[in-house]
Structure formats: structure tokens, C-alpha cells
Design a binder for these strands. Structure first.
Lengths: 154, 154
DNA sequence: CAATCATGGTTTCACCTGTAACCATTTGCA
DNA sequence: TGCAAATGGTTACAGGTGAAACCATGATTG
């Protein structure tokens, strides 16, 4: 194996490989947040994301929720089914387009939202606290840049 | 809703919430890499990670692979079962401890490794190319800092 | 050296996820 | 108008994944 002629073939150092590092850090952080509410509220990550976006934008359709959560429509459909069954989201059909649903949080949904949102923010603060102010600024800048800007509808 | 008294209750702006951004960026990048080899080699992400670590450290046990890949032992066990069945990894039992297995890539395993590793590196380069050199340095620094340093065995 | 405990690894189960197929409704267009 | 294509949403199916139970082997300790 002529290592200097084909350095690309050298074994990857996983722990310094950016996509791997991103994956580990992301999963660690997300898991910590999820642990805060999964068992306590019987609420999955996808369900929480749907609730978070409905808290900001009342009356969205399922498709619009999918866009704003970067989830596919199947995942949204399933999350909504559970949330509606649990009485956390209300759903009725659009007046002039019977395919579309009109979604929003119920009082019970808002109650949970108002308890979970602070916990999520707290975890974010804990993450930030592990960095210097300079690093915090750079991380925000970099992530803003790397985020897929918007998705042409699939 | 007294927004100024309880700002924590305000709806999360998902697209500016760090854990969410991390999750999106991480999944996008990982998916792009996985698409390079999943279909072509019938190789899952977990299997690739196992192969990558065995390329660097020959003779590890399954438990040691789990440590170095941040996967749990069940996932490693399953990945190994497939890799051994496909003739990509050789496994024999440790001489003086019959519980432990001794793992390594076969010639076929090395062949795949030497094709996939450059593709993974290429994707990493593409990710880096979306940043300024300054941002690249900061991202590396930040991720190194945020990576869970080592895990006390679970 | 026997009983107990710890360890490496696999299997089982229940759940979550994505893809593709599907149904109902609406839109586009001849 | 009438029929094909597009759209919103759900269902079915096939894998992937983690927690807990399990089996075999090895270490500990009385």
C-alpha cells in the first residue's frame, strides 16, 4: 500500500472526521433534550417538533408543518395522529379545500409546550456554556451557513 | 401570555435552535455520504463505521469496536454478523478468552474500504469547501471541544 | 473448589423510520 | 365539461434501533 501516493485510501480517523463528529455531537445533544420530555410526557422528538412549529404558526397544514420541521410527510402524519389522539393538537379540514387540514395546539398542547420549551432552551444554554463567547458566535454563523436554505418541494 | 415575564415560554424558533440545526446539518451530510455507498455496496452506515475502525485497529474485539464507534454492542453485533456473512470481516475467537472475538478486515473488506474511504473524504472536503478557512478552523476546534471525550464503559 | 458475580456477545421484542403504494380531492387543459 | 395530472394525506411493508433478557465463559471470593 503506497500510502504517500494514495493518501485517500488511508484508514479514516473516525474521531476527527467531521461528519462523524457532527453526528456524535448532534445525537448527544438531541438525546439529552429528548430525555427531558420523552418519558415524562410520552412525547417523541417528531411530535415535539410538530408542536413547536404549531406554537409559532397556528393553522398550518400538515404539508407546511413538514416543510418547517424538515420531516417528511409520513412522519408528520404519524406524529399528528398521536398528538390529535392525545388531545394536544386540534385538526379540522380546510373550508375550501377538503384535502388540507388546519392544525393548531389545544389548551393541553399549549400547557405541554410551555413546560417543554424552557427545558429545551436550558439544554441549548448548557451547550453554549461549554464554549467561549467567540466560539458561540462562530458556531452560530457556521450552522446558519451550512443549513440547507430551503427545500424545493419534493 | 406575558411574553416579557416568561420569555422561556415563547415558541422556539426551530430554525435557529442549535440542537435542531446540528441535527439537520448532521443528517444531511451523513445521508449524502451514505448514498455514495449504501446501494452500491449493500453496506449500512453502522457497517461502514465498523469497517473504518477495523481498518485502523486490526484485531479489536466487538466491545472495543463499540467503544470506538460510539455504537452500542447490539448494533455492533448485528453489523458484524452481516459483515462476516458477506466475507468482509474475519472473526475468530481469542486464544485465551473464548468469549472475546478477534476481528479484522478480509481482502474483500480492504478492497471496499479503499474505495469507500476516498468517497467519504471527498464529501468531507465538499463540506469544508462551503466555509472560509477561518470558519473551518473554528468548526474543528468547536467540535473537538464538544465531542464527549471518552465514555466510561456502560 | 464451589458459588457468585462480571463480562463478551447474541437474541428477542417493541418501536421508529423511510419508501412505495394508495385514496380522495383539486387543478389544468383540451 | 371531462379526463389526466398534481396534491394532501394515510396506510402497508420492510428494514433499522435500543432496552432488556439471555447464554456462555471467565474472574472473584469464601
Amino acid at each position: 500500500m503506497p500510502a504517500e501516493r494514495h493518501p485517500d485510501h488511508a484508514p479514516l480517523e473516525l474521531e476527527r472526521f467531521l461528519p462523524y463528529q457532527l453526528s456524535i455531537v448532534s445525537n448527544t445533544v438531541s438525546q439529552a433534550i429528548a430525555d427531558d420530555y420523552q418519558a415524562r410526557y410520552d412525547l417523541g422528538v417528531t411530535e415535539w417538533r410538530v408542536m413547536a412549529v404549531l406554537a409559532r404558526f397556528d393553522g398550518l397544514s400538515a404539508r407546511e408543518v413538514a416543510e418547517r420541521t424538515a420531516m417528511d410527510k409520513v412522519a408528520v402524519s404519524r406524529a399528528l395522529a398521536r398528538l390529535v389522539a392525545a388531545g394536544r393538537v386540534r385538526r379540522h379540514t380546510h373550508a375550501s379545500d377538503k384535502r388540507r387540514s388546519v392544525l393548531g395546539l389545544t389548551a393541553a398542547g399549549w400547557k405541554i409546550h410551555d413546560e417543554v420549551a424552557p427545558m429545551a432552551r436550558q439544554r441549548e444554554r448548557e451547550l453554549l456554556a461549554r464554549m467561549t463567547p467567540e466560539e458561540q458566535v462562530w458556531l452560530r454563523r457556521i450552522l446558519d451557513k451550512l443549513m440547507p436554505q430551503d427545500k424545493a418541494k419534493s
